[in-house]
Design a protein around this nucleic acid. Sequence first.
DNA 1: CTCCTATCCTGCGAGC
DNA 2: TGCTCGCAGGATAGGA
Length: 270
Amino acid sequence: MPELPEVEVVKRGLEKILENKPTLQKIELKRKDLRDVMPAKKLSTLVGAKILSVERRAKYLLIWTDKGGMLSHLGMTGTWRVAPEGDERLHDHIYLHFSGGLRLAYRDPRRFGIFDFIPAGKTHPKLSELGPEPFDASFTGETLWKSLRGKKINLKVAIMDQKVVVGVGNIYASEALFAAGIKPNLPAEKLSAARAEVLVREIRKVLQTSIDSGGSSISDFAQASGESGYFQTLFRVYDRAGEPCVVCKTKIKSTVMGGRSTYWCPHCQK
DNA sequence: CTCCTATCCTGCGAGC
DNA sequence: TGCTCGCAGGATAGGA
């Protein structure tokens, strides 16, 4: 579910919800086995800590306190929500109880998500191998072009590689390539420097537009506030196989690349 | 090294 | 209506 825009929207929501810097009073793990087993003991050292900030890196959320941090990844189906007493749902795996009666719930039916402890002043190993943030000045046509040297894989698969650029997942990879007019099956190393510039621009544009739209709400994605995003109504190719291209009316094609459904217009994308 | 596949897990919609 | 099948926003291990 969540690619960079959705995680960013959740991050902003949590920031707002936690803006009064409440104290973490209790961490309740209903079920410990997400993708990895959650470290209950280490996490319990955060009880009594005061929330400092919420950060996003790639598709990870970092919730910092004065005693250390919590790393959250939403996997495919993870959501954070404000859950008042009485609002307990199937697949709620974590409840964070705060001062002032606030309770946050993490729900994740498929349990592909991650929730881990970060010692104060440290980083997390999962963050060490990540590529540039798409909005960072270090992500340019030139750096993208360089990172694709020697890569024979499809460009679409390449831009979903979190070492090349973070945050671009299956939806926005198809959408960005359509916007850039580049076919998804172009061998990554064949992308010219000039077209890499265009792609960087379009990746940024599609991600920003989605953030501004509150992300894409497919099935169950929602912001922490419970509101849905509406970028899914702005999809131009994703999930539109067989439908007419919004530009030229040619039927949108779909194939599997790197194990994931990929959508493109055979006329507009060269 | 790079690349490719299978896999973790549950729910849902399409098709019969 | 009820069943089965295939697929779903991600990331990683393991083998070629």
